[in-house]
């Protein structure tokens, strides 16, 4: 397979791959184009005019609900979930390197948290708050619901990272007189930082796009996916597509920031010749 010229199998598979990529991106590109229509635009082709009309329309609150507010809530929630996910997963990852009582149960709870359908978690938390007579809100119950989705991913990634982590770096630090905190701050964190950023990125986007887990947990004020969902049932203008373009742009911005910070970290390491992560 690795030898010689590329056979027909390669070209067949390459064509298949290309088709899949078209399938993946085509619809999103379609609504991107359609969101720039003029004021008399509709939900389908052909394009009617070219303007930013629907983007202005989007942020006029009275027409389509509270998009700006929902966007703000989702961004704040996403950032907080991101930070908490990074800290809690990192800390738990450290703990899981040692055997402790309950580690197996906790591990399987994390797996359960992934495989129990989101709607059930949403329903459960919603019912719990109702039974306790606490009003659900996006910053309390929805926040917790999102964590049950982001933390298992964070934990699994950190477990994989620490499985490949050479503990001799820590021993070396300790031998040189570093306190436990200094060891973590100056040795462990720099080595796992790229993965930790990955965990954070995961946390942010999972939370930012989460629908089912927010459904019965976000209370009076909607997060963005709920607001979008609400809009789809009663809005039939390209403002929907403008919204799609905006949220997709936010997602791409986050991806770009993450990729850029990855490459900055890598380049800085190359330039400064840090020995972190290199074999002894």
């Amino acid at each position: 397979m690795k030898h010689g010229k590329r056979g027909p199998a390669f070209w067949f598979l390459a064509a298949f791959f290309t088709l899949f990529v078209l399938f993946l991106y085509g619809p999103t590109l379609t609504i991107l184009v359609l969101s720039f229509q003029g004021p008399e635009g509709t939900l389908t082709f052909p394009m009617r005019g070219l303007s930013l009309h629907w983007f202005f329309n989007l942020f006029q609150t009275q027409l389509v609900g509270d998009i700006a507010g929902a966007l703000k809530r989702s961004l704040v929630l996403g950032v907080v979930v991101m930070i908490v996910t990074m800290i809690v997963s990192f800390s738990a990852g450290l703990a899981f390197r040692n055997r402790f009582r309950g580690s197996t149960i906790l591990f399987y709870l994390a797996i359960a948290s992934l495989i129990v359908p989101s709607i059930l978690i949403s329903l459960g938390i919603g019912l719990l708050f109702r039974v306790l007579e606490i009003d659900p809100a996006w910053y309390s119950s929805a926040f917790g619901a999102h964590l049950t989705w982001t933390l298992p991913f964070g934990l699994l990634i950190m477990l994989a990272v620490f499985n490949r982590f050479d503990r001799r770096y820590e021993e070396a630090a300790r031998d040189l007189g570093a306190t436990p905190w200094q060891t973590i701050r100056h040795v462990v964190i720099p080595i796992v930082l790229p993965s930790l950023i990955g965990v954070g990125l995961f946390g942010f986007t999972l939370s930012y796009d989460e629908f089912a887990r927010s459904l019965y947990t976000s209370g009076t004020f909607n997060t963005l996916p709920l607001e979008i969902y609400g809009m789809t049932t009663n809005i039939t203008t390209p403002v929907l597509y403008a919204l799609g373009t905006v949220t997709t742009a936010v997602s791409f911005l986050v991806i770009a920031i993450a990729l850029i910070s990855f490459s900055i970290i890598r380049r800085r390491r190359e330039r400064h010749g840090s020995d972190a992560g290199k074999a002894a």
Binding site: A95, L109, L155
Partner: peptide
Amino acid sequence: TYFQVTPLALVFLIFLVIPIATI
């Protein structure tokens, strides 16, 4: 170790185990 793992355990307890039990 227990201190490091407590936040994770608490989140799963409050937002996974108890809600499912509530259901």
